[in-house]
Amino acid sequence: MGKLFAVVLTIITVVATAIFVMRVWWLPADISVHGPWIDHQLMETMLSSGILFVVSQLALALFVWKSGDRREGRKIKIFPGGAVPMVVLATVLVGAEILALTFVGSKVWASIYQTPPDPNSLAIDVQAEQFAFYFRYPGADGKFGGIHPELMNEASQNFFGLDPAHDTAARDDIVVPTLAIPVNRPVLLTLRAKDVNHAFYVPELRIQQDFVPGLVIPLHFTATQPGKYELVCTQLCGLGHYNMRAYVEVMPQEQFDQWLKQQAAQQ
């Protein structure tokens, strides 16, 4: 039975690890400036914890294999050195690993979430609601109109509760359900929730952030590859959660300018 356990555990370990190593299922293409830092951190962690995983499982398998030994008169053996070296070794090794991960990882985190946005960023207002995202560009005046929750009306497509009758800054605001951004230009999003918690997750951009009602949360990044990607909600928001998504279209600056003009005409 001990040998069977060892064999089964070894097969599980090898197969599970092989699927990681062969990248049968893997992260999608990385299309943001900060993405490679995250991927690098992920690979470092994958490597160190992968070794820990394989070594622990195989050690377990090996010891179980050997402990099934039924030879007459075999004595039990205490682990060489007892518990103390083991405790010291675990503390030092794991401690060193987490120190390394923390130092590098905190820098990655800080450079994404704790640095101010580029002053030349393109500002876009994002509103999440049950169960869609809407994006607002400031229009020709470069200013966003004020938001009045009591004026929000989906039937007339006034998703942001703008008051164009009294607020001239609101009149040229461009509201669309697709996030179009120019490639290689820093983008600064301000995230607002209309009703409940939502989240902004674009796997290719390696970015994720919750929308919280009552808070306006800034989020900035730069996309490096033109293309069409999916933005999905990752914070449970109700029955339509699974279907809450929008497309992110990364395009060259000229194409973006044209797109924006076209959208402005339709408002």
Partner: peptide, 28 residues
């Protein structure tokens, strides 16, 4: 014995999720 094995498997992935930078991708 099974407990030790699955606890290791589950604990290892904690290394990833404990780091905010990786959680940025894997959260949710």
């Amino acid at each position: 014995l099974g407990f030790v094995s699955v606890f290791v498997s589950g604990g290892i992935s904690g290394f990833f999720l404990a780091q905010p930078s990786i959680d940025t991708y894997l959260h949710g």
